[in-house]
Design a binder for these strands. Structure first.
Length: 563
RNA sequence: UGGGGCGUCGCCAAGUUGGUAAGGCAUGGGAUUUUGGCUCCCAUAUUCGUAGGUUCGAAUCCUGCCGCCCCAGCCA
């Protein structure tokens, strides 16, 4: 299948187009997304997924593999394998039969290691980790050769086999590539290929007592899978000479590695290490906390795969370090949901309004449009009665200039309802808090239009007291107060900039009756408020909504600019 | 100070052989509006980190300088 993209080709797609043109790989395009199953996927991974699977999809016969780089059993867990597969699928991509694991190649890798030992290109080293560090030198000083560097092939073979057999303690020996301890590129200073880890592996069980390092496994895994363009992030650029060296020494198929800049987003962190810490220290409710930039968190928050894919298309792919404004992500969601989400009325902070001239005990159904952006979505009925709730912030006793919602003596429209005019403000005599409003309605304005053509400045959302349903609503804000939480100030901890107001739970909310049968995962636009998603915590008659993103709000911006 | 990269509008990012700076987000203004939503118009880099050089002409070529990121895990 071939999908056309409108945007100009990024540098990676340009390279692939050129490779195709020169027939470098006989017309094949095989990419791969190679996560380590040691955490949940986040929006940064989505960028890589969209790139790798996207490139495959755009080119005739292109394929993208999902390969788990499961070379470190200490950090990897079954839970992560599952979440990763779920998230990739949810994003809309399919690896088909091409699901692989670096652990599938452990035996082959071992044989290649033997080959390198035989050709004098690898040796068993007895230096401790600390000693190895000392011998490695620094960026400006060359390293020194290990005293074990010149062991005979026979001895190396023997030792390496015994490492595999589990004869030695963890950390006592490693297999190293014999390259150049004076190389200016530190990765070439005899890097470790195998370490002893007496730990069971999720997939290979107790079969192995030694495990390949990522550097030793990754390039060969790509080679085995006949990957054409091996796309990875910038930090691996300096590893490329090592990968090239391994592949040349073994004499196998050579994929082309291309590096791009990883994603950074404002007001959040995109490092698995930090995200894991937030989860483990219970600073968030889990990997799928709606405040997390994880795929599962975004999903729970109400994001759509379409919005995330659109975002990934828009940010582009390049080599310059960058930090994308999270407002762009939010914009992508709004744009998607504006077209698709049905509109509904919900009052988050209810203020009671009694319509004095509306007959007691009377009720009527008003017709409301489900989505003005999508005529096919039809209409629904909304119950109206004498006592309704409006949003507390839609009334001001002493309105400042520019506030054109309800105020004493002022007339506004109730969406799909009537024009009402505020006659009285009732307050708690003790606290002075406004407890209810008394209004009168104009029966001629049913549906929201006035026969005399009189205009009102504002339209309010509302809900009938008697007919509405109680609900809980969770409002989410940025996880951090700083745009760049990973740039830590002197003497501070990155967690210090966590936003204490990133979650606000509202319990006394009222929503219109049509939401009675809303299912977890359903998304709606609460008119004038934002886009909300039904949470799994919902119970019958007690729905819970997560705010995915607010609507753009000119009034709040006016207020903000006045401060 | 060794090596590898990168520097185009507030944030991303096009700019393929040098020909006179796309687009999106954000922001400001206006129109429209039964969501202060959506939509639609308009505005916003005489300038491409910087200083020189080559050229009729440079963001694109050359040289120097400055800045930022990555590398010293038996992590990935």
């Amino acid at each position: 299948m071939t999908n056309e993209r409108k945007a100009p080709l990024d540098f990676i797609r340009t390279i692939i187009a050129e490779d195709l043109k020169s027939n470098k790989y006989q017309g094949r395009v095989v990419t791969r997304f190679p996560p380590e199953p040691n955490g949940y996927l986040h929006i940064g991974h989505a960028k890589s997924i969209c790139l790798n699977f996207g490139v495959a999809k755009e080119n005739q016969g292109g394929v993208c593999h999902l390969r788990f780089d499961d070379t470190n059993p200490i950090k990897e867990e079954e839970e992560f394998f599952e979440s990763i597969k779920e998230d990739v699928h949810w994003l809309g991509f399919d690896w088909g039969k091409n699901l692989f694991h670096a652990s599938d190649y452990f035996e082959q890798l071992y044989q290649w290691a033997i080959q390198l030992i035989n050709s004098g290109k690898a040796y068993v080293c007895d230096l401790s980790a600390d000693q190895m560090r000392e011998y490695r030198g620094t960026p400006t000083q060359p390293g020194r050769n290990s005293p074990y560097r010149d062991r005979s092939v026979e001895e190396n073979l023997d030792l390496f086999q015994r490492m595999r057999a589990g004869e030695f303690e963890e950390g006592s020996r490693v297999l190293r590539a014999k390259i150049d301890m004076a190389a200016p590129n530190i990765n070439l200073r005899d890097p470790a290929m195998y370490r002893i880890l007496k730990v069971a592996h999720q997939r290979t069980g107790d079969q192995w007592r030694i495990y390949p390092t990522y550097d030793w496994a990754h390039g060969q895994s790509d080679s085995i899978e006949k990957i054409t363009q091996s796309i990875c992030t910038l930090e691996f650029e300096i590893h490329r000479p090592l990968y090239d060296w391994f592949i040349e020494q073994i004499g196998i198929y050579h994929p082309r590695q291309i590096e791009f800049a990883r994603l950074n987003l404002t007001y959040t962190v995109l490092s698995k290490r930090m995200l894991k810490q937030l989860v483990e220290s219970k600073l968030v409710s889990g990997w799928d906390d709606p405040r997390m930039p994880t795929i599962s968190g975004l999903r729970k928050r109400g994001y759509t795969p379409e919005a995330i894919r659109d975002f990934c298309d828009r940010i582009g792919v390049a080599k310059a370090d960058s930090r994308v404004d999270i407002a762009l992500l939010e914009h992508c969601l709004r744009e998607d949901l504006n077209k698709r989400a049905n509109r509904v009325m919900a009052v988050l902070r209810p203020l009671k309004v009694v319509i004095e001239n509306y007959p007691e005990g009377q009720a009527e159904d008003l017709e409301a449009v489900n989505n003005p952006e999508d005529p096919a979505s039809g209409t629904r009925k909304v119950s109206f009665s004498r006592v309704i709730y409006i949003e507390r912030e839609d009334f001001m006793e002493n309105p400042p200039k520019g506030f054109f919602r309800l105020a004493p003596g002022r007339e506004v429209r109730l969406r799909y309802g009537y024009y009402i005019t505020c006659k009285d403000v009732v307050k708690d005599p003790k606290t002075g808090e406004i407890t209810e409003l008394h209004c009168v309605y104009d029966p001629e304005t049913r549906g929201g239009g006035s026969p005399d053509g009189r205009k009102v400045k504002a339209t309010l959302h509302w809900v009938s007291a008697e007919h509405s349903l109680p609900a809980e609503v969770r409002l989410y804000g940025h996880l951090f107060t700083k745009p760049n939480p990973d740039e830590i100030e002197e003497g501070k901890d990155w967690k210090d900039s966590l936003n204490p107001e990133s979650l606000e739970t509202l319990t006394g909310c009222r929503v219109e009756p049509s939401l009675k049968n809303a299912q977890p995962g359903d998304r709606f636009q609460f008119e004038r408020l934002g886009y909300f998603c039904v949470d799994k915590d919902s119970k019958a008659g007690a729905p819970v909504f997560n705010r995915a993103v607010s609507l753009r709000d000119e009034w709040s911006r006016i207020q903000k600019s006045r401060k």
